[in-house]
Design a protein around this nucleic acid. Structure first.
Lengths: 148, 148
DNA sequence: CCTTACATTTAGAATTATTCCAAATGTTGA
DNA sequence: TCAACATTTGGAATAATTCTAAATGTAAGG
C-alpha cells in the first residue's frame, strides 16, 4: 500500500485534513490506516488497541483526537448505537447501518437513506425490527435568528 | 372505578406494562405523565427534575428504571444523538427526528422512514446537512446460528 | 540556524451519563 | 399472615469521553 509514500504531506488524506486546518501527523496517518485496514466498525478503544501494535507509544487521547480529526474532515463516519461507545467507519459512501441486536455487529448497508422503507434488499437472513432515521442540520428558529 | 382513572391498574398504560410483566407504579405513571406533558425530548436528567416537582421523593435511579420500562413496553422512544445523553419521546407514531446542530433542539418529523430522500417537506426554514439511518434487528449469521 | 508561535501528543485527572448494589418498602397470592 | 417477588432509593461504581498542563514537534521569519 502507500507505506512507500515517503512524504506524508503528499497524500490525499493530508489534503482533506488541510482543508480543515489540520496536519497529517504520523499518528493520524496510522489511525487512518488502522481504520481502513479492518472495516469492522471498531470503537475508539479497539482502534487504540490496534494502533498500539504498530505504534506502541500512541495514547488514548491521541486516538480520540485522530478519530475526531478524521470525522471532521470527512474521512470517517462516527456510528452511534444506543448508549454504547461510538464506532468508526472509513466507508464514506452514502450508506446505512444495520445493528444486530443479538451479536452486536454493525454492517454497512449500501443503499443510501432514500431506499429505506422501499423494500430494499438486505443481505440474506437479515431481519429488521426497527428503523431509526435522524436528520441533522439547522432548524427554522436558528435560521431565522441568523438573519438579524 | 370512576370515570377519572383513579385506579392505576385500569389505565391503558398499565396494560402495556403488564404485557412485559411490569407493574404500573405511581412513579412510572408520574414519569409517563411528565413525558407526555412537555414533548420536548428531555434527557433523563430533565425528566428527573420535572418529576421531582410533583413527586419530590423520586430518585434518579427510579427515573431511569421508569424510562426504561416505558421504552421496553412501547410507550416511549429513546432518541440518541451523538454521544450526549439519551432523550425520551412519548410520540409512538412512525416518525423521524431532526437534530439542530446549532441550538441542540430535537424535532419530530412526521413522515416515517420511507419518506427520507424523497423530497419530504421539512418545516419551514429547516436545512438538512446529514441523514443517518440505522436499522436494527438480527443479522444473517445470528439467524443461521439460531436454527440449530 | 535560532527564535517565536502555534499545533499536537501524552498521561493522567476530571466529567458525564448511566448502571449497579444492597437495604428498605410495597405488592401479590397461597 | 407469610413467603416470594417487584420496585424504589441513595449512593457507589463503571464506562466512555473530555479536559488539562506539560513536553514535544513543526513551520515561518529574522
Amino acid at each position: 500500500m502507500n507505506g512507500s509514500s515517503s512524504n506524508l504531506s503528499d497524500s490525499p488524506v493530508s489534503a482533506r485534513l488541510a482543508m480543515r486546518g489540520l496536519r497529517l501527523t504520523p499518528q493520524r496517518q496510522h489511525v487512518y490506516e488502522v481504520l481502513v485496514g479492518v472495516r469492522d466498525h471498531p470503537t475508539a478503544e479497539e482502534v487504540f488497541l490496534r494502533a498500539k501494535q504498530g505504534m506502541p507509544e500512541i495514547s488514548m487521547a491521541t486516538v480520540y483526537n485522530c478519530l475526531d480529526a478524521l470525522v471532521r474532515c470527512g474521512l470517517a463516519k462516527q456510528v452511534n448505537v444506543d448508549r454504547s461507545a461510538s464506532r468508526f467507519c472509513p466507508n464514506m459512501s452514502d450508506h446505512d447501518h444495520f445493528y444486530c441486536e443479538r451479536c452486536g455487529g454493525i454492517y454497512d448497508i449500501e443503499n443510501g437513506a432514500g431506499a429505506v422503507g422501499r423494500g430494499i434488499e438486505l443481505p440474506r437472513g437479515f431481519e429488521v425490527t426497527h428503523v431509526d432515521v435522524s436528520l441533522r442540520g439547522v432548524c427554522g428558529s436558528c435560521n431565522d435568528a441568523e438573519k438579524v
